[in-house]
Design a protein around this nucleic acid. Structure first.
Lengths: 123, 123
DNA sequence: CTCTATGCAAAAACTTTGCAGGGAT
DNA sequence: ATCCCTGCAAAGTTTTTGCATAGAG
């Protein structure tokens, strides 16, 4: 299903703003905050957040709050854990976390707090 | 080590504000936000946050950002995971998480996202 | 044509900072 | 007496809301 079909399948209107947002999410495939992409999208922050909200409500995206007080959004497809660096606040997707953990239907997400590779070296 | 000794061991001044804060943390032993206790402490929010910061810098407390955009603080003693409810944002300490996970010195904290007991029933 | 989406500006929610006065050691 | 701590008010940061206009279906 392409971007247009995905959007229309949720009875949402297909607009340039929404198309560009989903393309960015598919291309980067990592959690993204408004701050991360505000310079590469040409839309007001209200539009960004309202679309995030619409996408999340329709199951296209999921989101979480990081340690830097920003909300991060990502496509809701793959189940994986996140590592949030306790020093630099960077976010890394952990695709090699024991998949059994996610077999528990009660677990919707896992976040590990620790140092990222870069900050670990600098210690 | 009592409250006074703990504070002085960090070369911090022992004040009524700090004493009452640590007593609350010891009594409740769960993650606490400013909102949670603002009515039961008689101190300005600036004092609360500045003391949280001082305690955290000295290893007395640790903190994390929850899904409700509030920062939660707790005593840094025990290693346990947290369950943050994806529906009501309540926070629960999970003391029965496989302790092996915490043997990895790189793991400083674990957060599980899912429904709390109460919200699970209501589904 | 109708209803949703967008931009702009203002508000909201939580935390931090500046400054002057007060208190611990 | 010296610094650190505190309260108050103002500013900072991120996200949300109100309202008028534009655009999708």
């Amino acid at each position: 299903m392409n971007t247009k079909e995905l959007i229309k399948s949720k009875s949402l209107k297909f607009t340039p703003a929404r198309e560009s947002l989903l393309e960015i999410f598919e291309k980067l495939s990592k959690p993204i905050s408004y701050e991360d992409i505000k310079d590469s999208i040409s839309m007001d922050k209200a539009t960004f957040y309202r679309n995030m909200s619409a996408f999340e409500k329709n199951g296209i995206l999921k989101s979480f709050e990081s340690n830097d007080k920003k909300r991060y959004y990502e496509l809701s497809g793959s189940m994986h854990a996140h590592l949030i660096c306790t020093k630099c606040n960077s976010i890394e997707c952990l695709h090699d976390i024991p998949q059994e953990l996610f077999n528990d239907p009660d677990i919707e997400g896992i976040t590990i707090h620790g140092k990222c590779k870069k900050c670990k070296q600098e210690n």
